[in-house]
Amino acid sequence: MLVVRNLNYKNILRNITFKIGKSGFVAILGPNGSGKTTLLKCLANIFRDYKGDIFILGKNLKKINKKEIPQLISYVPQKSFGNSLKVYETILLGRLASKGFSAITKKDFEVIEKILEELKIKHLANKETKNLSGGEFQKVQIARALAQNAKILLLDEPTNNLDIKNKILLFELLKKLSKKILIISVLHDISFSLNYADHFIFLKNGNIVKTSHKNFVKHEDIAELFDLKEIIFDDFYENNFKNFCNNI
């Protein structure tokens, strides 16, 4: 599905090579400045002057027809600002940016309706995005990315502006989606990622230091990644997640 071979970007990424299957939830972890966001931007067609190859479904990203890109990848940036567009139009753009004239179909509206409900932002549909709170806007960005119906969803610290309830809602949704599509997310919240992600990519100084399935992640690895002597997780989250989720 996604094959990255000898990816180099300026001096930030060095010889990144990995391979991921059709679905699943992949977390990219690493200290600040390790190249996580850069890696994501290369995968999202934002940085195109990288060396090496990125293959999606066997097609080289650099050679894919531009119109096909939004159906293959969708991207949610780390920082973004609202504007005068309304929420439903912002989401609509996810489906239509690559199309000409008035190409809106009934299906577009159905898809958007469903996503608005799923993310519980239906009441915001007619608001201008500049009037939303940080968390609300983050959800709109995610909704826009989901509306693309892409094979790969790339997220850069998606839970940044979200409160605990919305964080859990989002992770639950991502978990559900990851059964069908591939989700790759830069995450800072290690406890959350340990609870939800299936695979891990550990990035440090532009190199992949380890890739691992969730069952084989050791706390020592994470401590080493962040240059810490040891890292201890109590089971607060783990025990409380279930309760939280049941209560939502």
């Binding site: 931007k41 999202a44 067609n45 934002i46 531009k66 119109k67 096909e68 890109i69 939004p70 990848i73 969708s74 991207y75 940036p77 973004s80 600002f81 504007n83 005068s84 567009l85 139009e89 912002t90 753009l93 996810g94 239509l96 940016a97 690559s98 199309k99 000409g100 004239f101 008035s102 190409a103 960005q141 826009r144 693309q148 790339l154």
Partner: peptide, 23 residues
């Protein structure tokens, strides 16, 4: 009229527009 969706995708920020396949 032909390019309106592309043009408005610029409103989402350059990076998002690029990820939507807009040159």
């Amino acid at each position: 009229e032909k390019k309106k969706y592309k043009i408005f995708s610029l409103e989402l920020g350059e990076e998002v527009a690029l990820s939507l396949g807009v040159d």
